[in-house]
Amino acid sequence: MKEVTIVDYGVGNLKSVANAFKSLNCKVGLAQNAKNILSSDYLIFPGVGAFHNAMEELRQRELIDAIKEFNSLERPFLGICLGLQLLFENSCEFGNHVGLSLLKGSIKEIPSQGSEGLTHKIPHIGWNNIINQSPNLHPILKGLPQRPFFYFVHSFMAVPENSSDIIAKTNYNGIQIPAIAGRNNFLATQFHPEKSGSIGLKVLSNFLKM
């Protein structure tokens, strides 16, 4: 039985993430300290809410270095939603804030106008399909329909410095939003796989094969 560890830093809907992995026959644990993080096989880094709040929670719990160190071990890692954004260098949400800097680039507000000048609603809430960007289909996307739908809910988006860090993107009225970022088994989704029905569960089960 695979064992998945979810970083518990007081932010995010841990229960839904845990339930999704339990439905895939995993043992699910919560990591509240550096030791738990470093001893995990599969680390899940969820998050909702504001960027600086989350960074502050990580700092107070002394988890920042542990997450960085875990990454150097090259074990499977999956950030979700804010857990994707926190991996970048900085964010302009409520001021300028430094992130974990595991990926190069910034977090910016989603433009309130689409490419054709049509205004659209922010937050971007709802189901949107994603498009593979890597030269070969990344294993996380294996066995999915061609343009699978996932559930997004966010007002900010990643703007990676290296386009090779974008594994899949989604299109919100012409705005290209990174939907999956990372490389190899170091991954993060802007959407919520745990809230994206059976297709979301498929992504999680792909992750467990890494």
Partner: peptide
């Protein structure tokens, strides 16, 4: 066993109430 977003309302009065619902699995 439901893997889509859930909005919950009714009688929410405080930050603690919100926290409690979010921790229970509300999105």
């Amino acid at each position: 066993d439901i893997y889509i977003p859930i909005t919950v309302g009714g009688g929410v009065r405080s930050i603690d109430d919100i926290q409690e619902l979010l921790r229970s699995g509300a999105d």
